[in-house]
């Protein structure tokens, strides 16, 4: 049990953070720890999307995908450690932490409590969703049969043809990979491990959005997070809202799309147009667009539409054709996977 807990902290906490540092080392962001965490996850999703699609169609064994993905992540981790170790000034960092005064202002505490409450309930309580008959069962089938979209998740018969609507967004394979790495059953990963983690990731994205929108003012950001938390908790006026999806079924790719990926695209695009930091922001946007394709088949068009909408609006404001060109490049994965789906379905 303790060993599995350590594995969870390593695979779901430390690994994404170190991965993300590979990119954030080129920034001078104050919130680079938060950025690194979410970038690490998007990088994992993007790499999986690039590997999984050809392997699925070539009917490769799941273990090949698992080992290939781990190998690439491993290499990137080593690269990140080497590149960041040189810059790590341990003694100075330690002294800086010692000098920090912890001032638990009421607003910060309330925001943390509300976010913590959502994570707590997601971990200890359950909302059963029957869509897992496909999505979570796919993760389980992938591991047990060592195959990807060959055997039907829903009844166990071989598929007559690939389920095209789902094959281009194989998020259940990510659940299967994590399940193998942390040695926990995929259904437990989906229903118990992922929910608090993905809720945390969502609120990290909102925190970064808040920092962007309020220029880092901590009081304003805290109020923003409190209001957002209340909006989400009271957002069950319909089961079809992104609010309900975050708190009901965040382990499903479509909920991640609605509550993590789309807000990240908004955030990253705002960074791209407001900051003159060159290629890194746009690179992150491409990675996020690839991640959007992995998490849900809806992600392929919706991410493209959201980016397109932002480009149109900011093109009118700034009249920079470069937005169109750079965004056009970012949306290539969505176009490619969308076209492949339309041709092959």
């Amino acid at each position: 049990m303790f060993f599995k807990l350590l594995l969870c902290i390593l695979i779901l906490g430390i690994v994404p953070e170190i991965l993300g540092l590979l990119i954030t080392q080129f920034w001078k962001e104050k919130s680079s720890i938060l950025w690194s965490f979410i970038i690490g996850y998007f990088l994992e999703f993007a790499i999986l999307q690039l590997l999984a699609i050809p392997m699925i169609f070539l009917k490769v064994k799941f273990t090949v995908l698992l080992y290939s993905w781990c190998a690439i992540i491993g290499v990137l981790l080593v690269l990140s450690i080497i590149m960041n170790l040189r810059k790590l000034k341990i003694k100075e960092t330690f002294n800086l932490i010692k000098k920090q005064k912890i001032e638990p202002k009421p607003m910060y505490v309330i925001a943390i409590i509300l976010i913590g409450l959502q994570m707590f309930i997601a971990f200890f309580y359950t909302h059963i969703d029957d869509d897992d008959a496909f999505f979570v069962a796919t993760s389980n089938v992938t591991i047990e049969e060592n195959s990807m979209y060959i055997i039907s998740a829903e009844n166990g018969s071989p598929y007559k043809e690939f389920p095209m609507r789902y094959v281009f967004s194989p998020f259940p394979l990510y659940t299967a990979i994590i399940s193998k790495l942390i040695q926990i059953h995929p259904t437990i990963v989906a229903h118990t491990i992922f929910p608090p983690i993905f809720i945390l990731i969502a609120y990290i994205v909102y925190t970064l959005l808040g920092i962007k929108l309020f220029y880092g003012d901590k009081e304003d950001v805290s109020r923003f997070l409190i209001l957002l938390s209340v909006i989400y908790i009271w957002g069950n006026f319909s089961i079809y809202t992104n609010f309900s999806f975050l708190l009901f079924r965040i382990w499903q790719g479509k909920a991640i799309l609605a509550n993590i990926i789309l807000p990240s695209i908004w955030l990253l695009f705002l960074k791209c147009v407001e900051e003159n930091k060159g290629i890194i922001n746009w690179l992150l946007l491409i990675i996020t667009m690839l991640a959007s394709c992995l998490v849900s088949s809806m992600g392929i068009p919706l991410a493209a539409i959201t980016l397109g909408g932002l480009v149109v609006v900011f093109l009118v404001k700034d009249k920079k054709v470069s937005y169109l060109i750079k965004s056009g490049i970012c949306v290539i994965p969505n176009i490619v996977y969308g076209l492949m789906y339309l041709i092959m379905k």
Binding site: T126, H191, T192, L227, G235
Partner: peptide, 27 residues
């Protein structure tokens, strides 16, 4: 503002929506 938001929405944390299940599969 908090009151306006609360009275406009519907709380998701109800016994109808969530149960405490004694297994990690949550089934």
């Amino acid at each position: 503002i908090l009151l306006i938001i609360v009275s406009s929405g519907k709380c998701i944390y109800t016994a109808e929506n969530y149960q405490k299940i004694g297994n990690a599969f949550k089934l």
